[in-house]
């Protein structure tokens, strides 16, 4: 099965749980394992959090997801100033910030940043999907009643 969707969101934190709902429900309907789902949701939340915090002055940002062919690709697109700092290693425990990008790197297979200074940042996250054993065939969900 091949699913694509795109969400245009206000640049506010309240939209981040909504992105997780839509993406999480889509992946779970396709019998993706819970570990794989939670890795993707973690990375996407981190990227959305960055878009909300640093994607100003624009007041919206966009999330585009494509699920299919055993992969999940998510693009988080903001129209901010495009000034994302790339940390090389995890900050010391004294520091409370700077972990988001490293967490993303740790839980997805591929990550690309397209940073256009003054015009915005696109983060592209890609992960191979692990599917529950015995649930390979799509459409196995049953109707509640007929």
């Amino acid at each position: 099965m091949d699913i694509e969707f795109s969400l245009a969101l206000p640049r506010e934190a309240i939209g981040i749980p909504m992105v997780r709902r839509v993406l999480g429900d889509s992946l779970r309907s396709l019998h993706v394992t819970e570990n794989c789902v939670s890795d993707i949701l973690l990375a996407v939340s981190e990227a959305c959090g960055n878009a909300v915090r640093y994607g100003g002055p624009a007041n919206r940002y966009q999330v585009e997801a494509a699920i299919g062919y055993g992969r999940c690709d998510v693009r988080i697109i903001d129209k901010g100033r495009g000034l994302m700092r790339m940390p090389e290693r995890y900050p010391s425990p004294d520091l409370e910030n700077g972990r988001g990008i490293l967490i993303m790197r740790a839980v997805v297979d591929e990550i690309f940043f397209d940073i256009a200074p003054g015009q915005g940042t696109t983060v592209h996250l890609s992960k191979r999907l692990d599917v529950e054993e015995g649930a390979r065939a799509p459409g196995r969900r049953e109707l509640a009643s007929v």
């Binding site: 973690l42 959090g49 425990p93 910030n97 972990r99 967490i103």
Partner: peptide, 12 residues
């Protein structure tokens, strides 16, 4: 669910 913002709260 908990992301880095949650970890930051715990750290502080």
């Amino acid at each position: 669910f908990c992301d880095s913002t949650g970890m930051n709260v715990l750290l502080s």
